[in-house]
Design a protein around this nucleic acid. Structure first.
Lengths: 344, 344
DNA sequence: GACAGTCGTGCAACCGCTTGCATTAATGGC
DNA sequence: GCCATTAATGCAAGCGGTTGCACGACTGTC
């Protein structure tokens, strides 16, 4: 039913190989023949079947992109950037959502493996060992995870967490809570490690709460734990949790930032729109999407690239952080700070 | 390099057709042979190549899903629902983002056509004529558009718009503005038609502003137009625009809802989190995603299904709407209304 | 005018898998 | 004990393309 290369060949009075070359190696066919073939192809509405081509060339011109949860506003800008970058190279993106489920991740990678030229694994939840194994089955670029020998794009969340905690301690906070992310998240571990070190250096106490679901609900449900811990400041694994936490705190009668300061991570669009506006660590998600696609496509050429690139993060101070009970650093004017500005 | 059916056949000492049948028609092969083949397949790590299978069977077990803008929070829940529904039927979803660009939509449909069993076209921007033409090239289910002869899932936004406008006029608003959506949007036309009729019936004046980009920015930039038009109430094409509008109004010194009431459409997650919380028309996006996948898969069986299903919408009254200058209906208690409740 | 070198095209194998048909062996009926 | 069934497997064509190789027709050179 669909029009194939054979139909075009018949109409143009040439062999199928000539039609094939008209599309995949035009310089090899006589300009006259070429235009005749193109005319017939156009007329018949012929479109090369990429899947059939892939069978023999091994190139599908598709890229798989696996995320934990599309509905988490952190991912769409990354997906969008990856998609438009892929399109520039005539590739398409196959997006899959794994519902934060490590087992599903593995299944999806395997299912996609044969129909894509490579897979972008964004914020994976599975183990390093499994990722290494999968990377032997299909070219893989990992985002938000660092594994020796695997090409990766990571955000410098360690620095982000450090600056966020320094911001809080400079404001005079001495009891800080950290809302951990989901189990299996490399980012969450990085944040925890960095926040702990920074808090210690500043002589502040850090209470770790979690792991938690990286959602608004995950933040909402731990509001009581935060209050019970006596924390006056909180760094959340991501903005969604931070926003949920603020809801929970307000519902429990605590004021933000007067009673409790809250810092998120990601700087999703939402963060500018809530009241109070969220102070957060901005991560360059679109840049990460583009970079990951570029790495994957470069990957194809000089086989076994294992480059890893790190993107910078920035603290964006808005309205959800203010002075704590302790002495605050004179360098940091606290609640008199410029709102919405970018620090560091 | 990848292990194929031939490797498994060799290892098991059977013909490739037997291996093939072990996977695609197990009842045709002797249980002993089958388990031997399965054991060798497992050992070698064999996975059937779906693309190769598709070449001959015509079934790819993939579904294309095309949205205007993944970063618009309206879409992710739909995508997520579609994906999990597709997975139940062992299908995968190919997501593409067209950047609100009608020309790109066409290109993407054509590019996907051969690698999917069908395409879900969500909130298309292209013309009906073009959609009809494409539906001859690949099974298509359209979401948020009604075209004779094309299977579709639509939300009853006409009713939603009517109830929203009735809500506003009942509160005493007599000058209502409508922020139109993007050009090419069927939903936008439906809303306009319904809102106009409802306003007329209620003796209110309706000013149409737009078309606009269906984004926060699109709403932000028309805040001045709204004030200039003297409207005391606004119905926006979607929540994102409504939220942007509120920002713009606040920035211009107007209070919401005291000076201007704002109603959105979609009930995206964000709407519960802004201040004031947004009154909006909830659309069943997840249900739409599931329904669309079901229709597409059913489509395959009894060829040429042209069923169209309509999903209901509901007004969710929150904090962005309040009394207007005119007499308000006693049936509607205005700003004393239960917040967050679901009306109608 | 003979020869080497291009250029353009056709031929046929093949990518990994499915499937109609042929073949063989085992089963059962009488 | 013979024939008709049935079950299990092999054979080979083909899905829609790509590509190495061969071949013929032109070029230009001397």
């Amino acid at each position: 039913m669909a029009v194939t290369i054979r139909d075009v060949a018949r109409a143009s009075g040439v062999h199928i190989s000539t039609v094939s070359r008209t599309f995949s190696a035009p310089h090899l066919v006589n300009p006259n023949t070429r235009s005749r073939v193109l005319a017939h192809a156009e007329e018949l509405g012929y479109r090369p079947n990429r899947a059939a081509r892939a069978l023999i060339t091994g190139r599908t011109y598709n890229i798989g992109l696996i995320v934990a949860d599309i509905a988490n506003p952190f991912f769409p800008p990354l997906i969008k950037a990856a998609e438009s970058q892929a399109r520039k190279h005539d590739h398409h993106i196959f997006v899959a959502d794994t519902n934060e489920d490590a087992a599903l991740e593995e299944e999806v990678v395997r299912a996609l493996a044969k129909q894509v030229d490579g897979v972008l694994l964004v914020s994976p939840r599975m183990s390093n060992a499994l990722i290494e194994q999968l990377s032997r089955e299909v070219p893989l670029v990992v985002v938000n995870r660092q594994i020796a020998g695997i090409p990766a794009v990571v955000m410098d969340v360690a620095r982000g967490a450090r600056i966020a905690v320094e911001h809080l301690t400079a404001l005079g906070h001495r009891r800080v809570a950290l809302l951990g992310g989901p189990r299996g998240s490399w980012t969450s571990r990085e944040i925890r490690r960095s926040a702990a070190a920074t808090a210690k250096a500043a002589g502040a106490e850090l209470t770790i709460i979690g792991p938690n679901a990286p959602t608004e609900f995950g933040g909402l449900t731990v509001a009581e734990d935060v209050l019970r811990a006596g924390a006056t400041a909180v760094l959340a694994y991501n903005d969604l949790m931070a926003i949920g936490l603020i809801e929970g705190l307000l519902a429990a009668g605590a004021r933000v930032p007067q009673d409790v300061s809250v810092v998120g991570i990601d700087d999703i669009m939402l963060s500018r729109l809530t009241r109070p506006k969220l102070t957060t660590v901005a991560t360059p998600t679109a840049a990460a999407g583009r970079a990951a696609v570029d790495m994957l496509l470069a990957h194809g050429d000089d086989r076994r690239t294992t480059a890893q690139i790190q993107l910078q993060t920035e603290l964006v101070i808005r309205d959800s952080t203010g002075r704590g009970p302790g002495p605050h650093s004179p360098a940091d004017p606290g609640d008199a700070i410029a709102h919405g500005g970018v620090a560091s």
